[in-house]
Design a protein around this nucleic acid. Sequence first.
DNA 1: TCCCGTCGTTGCGCGCGAGCAATCTCGCTC
DNA 2: GAGCGAGATTGCTCGCGCGCAACGACGGGA
Lengths: 230, 230
Amino acid sequence: MSRLHPSLIIGAPVFAGLDAGALDDILSRAQTVRLSKGDLAFRQDQRADRFFLLLHGRLRVTRLNAEGGQVVVRFIAPNDLFGVGMAIGAATYPGTATAVVDSLALVWPNSAWTDLVAAYPSVAVEALQSLGARLQDTQERVLDLSTLNVEQRIAGAVLSLAAQAGRATEDGTLIDFPLSRQDLAELTGTTLHTVSRTLSAWEAKGLVVSGRRRITVRDGPGLEVIAGKN
Amino acid sequence: MSRLHPSLIIGAPVFAGLDAGALDDILSRAQTVRLSKGDLAFRQDQRADRFFLLLHGRLRVTRLNAEGGQVVVRFIAPNDLFGVGMAIGAATYPGTATAVVDSLALVWPNSAWTDLVAAYPSVAVEALQSLGARLQDTQERVLDLSTLNVEQRIAGAVLSLAAQAGRATEDGTLIDFPLSRQDLAELTGTTLHTVSRTLSAWEAKGLVVSGRRRITVRDGPGLEVIAGKN
DNA sequence: TCCCGTCGTTGCGCGCGAGCAATCTCGCTC
DNA sequence: GAGCGAGATTGCTCGCGCGCAACGACGGGA
């Protein structure tokens, strides 16, 4: 088994402030998983016996309800911890994680979590912070769904994705992973039809350039006016 | 200053598994706050310098957005920890906590949090679990807002409140604190008008009995059929 | 290179639920 | 006990955005 190098996880907030020895110890318990585009890291309601850290790529987490309704919970970026069902007291994964591009992750068995927080208490504190940030985001989303109209929500989602995964191009800020109209609809609580109409209208106004699973923000401030969160 | 008795916090999940000495130490850092109906424990965007544990009563947490839209984030029950902005890395409170009945809480300065998690690591672990549960709930709410119609959402909210704060009466299960149509609307992402119409229709069918800020569930299974989460 | 599947676009009609307004009633306050 | 204000009810209308359907187009794979 090949040795993993500490530089792999030095950028991850969960392990911030730990020394090389600690990182080495942590890595010695991990394995790597390759996920090709479309592969699942875990499936909703499956027993949550492992947790992950994304090294490279991008994952989409979706959640289904009994009637077949589905939402996109979030997109996972490199250095994000995910699938921590056990740490938060859930026996099963609350959603399904799908690679939207070829990705690479580290994976630990659940038993490692207890050991890690015991040996390195800062890990629990950092996990608490990151979970808190996710709770804030999710509450913000509830507020948006309850009080904003569809166009405002789509604008907000596009801006937030551009901030999270934007890459500067000559046309503007490209959201740097494949994102379908359906994904955006499930992120904003609407239908792909309405998203498609909205993006077409924005494109006519020169606010964005969009293509098949690609969106480039050309006029960020213009979108912010639409989003109306000033 | 009068001594606080450990039995006060023995039922709180955050402090589960700690011995009498530990509880005593924790209590020695706390003060009590009385909140009359309508009083605020903290206000949104105010500096988050204290955290609380509810001993008795009920609080409503609301969150506002820039346009004046408002949602009810949650209702706080006795033994719930709340206002833990600092633990999750937020400098300010993300919402406003209002007492809906006369209430009593313990309060600690933020500095106590660091000491507590250092001295009693299980506190961080328990906090992580409770935060995880709240994240699950909030994500569920996003799913509901995105995929269910208004009547289903109201039914779900009423059932969940009855489960959280229900008291058996001769008429059925009474939600045991003042809950206005407006509250229920802000909890389900609709308007008080629609909530009022819906409750009237349910009352005509014998599913609930409702009055001024009071709702009694008469036919729980009937509401579950409407909620449709089977 | 062709083919096929996935993804995107757009038109049309309808229904849910918002918005507005007027009235009613309960219950707290002095 | 009287008065007042917050909360609840209900009718009416209108529009946003969903649902359906049909077509179009891009791009990956053999």
